[in-house]
């Protein structure tokens, strides 16, 4: 059999929420973070000519692509220089890299200055990372569908965020994790600030890496050392040990993590105490006496 052509698609989710600590402290650090991410993207493109990159941005108001294949340099018609595309390489930099940089900067500006983004200020809500992931999954699904026959596409997701939380989009996160797991898409998370329980679960489910970086200055180095290598290669590298993932459930009533809880048999909502009615699906429960399973031991033989 002819050797299979493998390409890799990396979709990076960048959190642009203004509440992130590093942005509050010094907004200009955004440039540093974006530069690091663009460098990672370019390095990924450099590893193989057929590698692909897409970048999705999100904040509390919305999430949207800031770089995808419709932004990429269109293949040039051989004669005739029409079309929007390539600026001549300026300082000897590979034009694809320069192009990615311009597009990302341009679209980031558009994204952050969008009226919807500016309308919300930082006290409102959590970053819509799950939305960004959902978009990314649709995008990966299409790239996978459109790939030439005989080519193998490995897709992966990388989230770079300095936000905490994620509880408000819990179900959307879970849907993405399970879809990714089913389709062998690895989810990596580079957290700039917090240990994120939910995203750690996502990394564990999909076989990706979770890393909370100790200092922002070293972001690029972490990105290149830890997240640039393809998942199959990572086994051979000495990487930070996998975190112990907390799979305890949060109760729907108080969002406390619980060891033992009560689950509605109709909608599977989790509660920390017995309540007579389910607040999610409004089912009225039988009184707790019925909770004890009827374990009458009966002879359990086949009839013949």
């Amino acid at each position: 059999m002819a050797e299979e052509v493998e390409t890799s698609l990396m979709v990076i989710v960048v959190d642009l929420h203004t509440r992130q600590r590093y942005l509050r402290q010094q907004p200009s650090q955004l440039v540093h973070v974006l530069d690091s991410i663009m460098t990672l993207a370019n390095m990924h493109l450099m590893l193989k000519t057929k590698n692909k990159v897409a970048i999705v941005a999100c904040n509390a108001a919305r999430s949207d692509f800031i770089y995808c294949d419709s932004d990429a340099i269109q293949p040039q018609p051989i004669q005739g220089q029409s079309g929007n595309t390539v600026q001549k390489q300026s300082d000897g930099q590979y034009e694809v890299f320069a192009h990615l940089e311009t597009m990302v900067k341009q679209n980031t500006r558009k994204f952050t200055l969008d009226e919807k983004s500016t309308f919300f200020d930082d006290r409102d809500g959590e970053s819509l990372i799950a939305g960004a992931l959902t978009l990314a999954m649709c995008y990966i699904n299409r790239i996978n569908r459109e790939k030439p026959t005989g080519e193998k596409l490995n897709s992966r997701l990388l989230i770079v965020t300095g936000c905490a939380g994620g509880a408000s989009q819990h179900m959307a996160y879970m849907n993405v994790f399970f879809t990714a797991q089913k389709q062998n898409i690895v989810l990596d998370v580079c957290s700039l600030d917090y240990e994120l329980g939910l995203l750690q679960q996502g990394c564990d489910i999909t076989g990706g890496l979770f890393l909370k970086i100790p200092q922002l200055q070293g972001l690029l180095q972490y990105l290149l050392w830890v997240f640039l290598p393809e998942p199959p290669i990572r086994k051979k590298l000495v990487l930070p040990p996998p975190a112990r993932v907390d799979y305890r459930a949060a109760c729907f009533c108080h969002r406390n993590l619980i060891d033992i809880g009560f689950v509605c048999s109709i909608c599977l909502s989790i509660f920390c105490k017995f309540s007579p009615i389910c607040t999610t699906c409004n089912t009225v429960f039988k009184p707790p006496t019925s909770l004890v399973p009827k374990k009458k031991k009966k002879p359990n033989k086949g009839v013949c």
Binding site: D246, G261, V263, S265
Partner: peptide, 22 residues
């Protein structure tokens, strides 16, 4: 079928690593 609240436990120790090697 009854509707009831079922008592369940959520163990908090995850497996360490997926393959025995690490």
């Amino acid at each position: 079928q009854d509707c009831s609240l079922v008592r369940m436990g959520f163990p908090h120790h995850s497996k360490i690593g997926n393959d025995p090697a690490d």
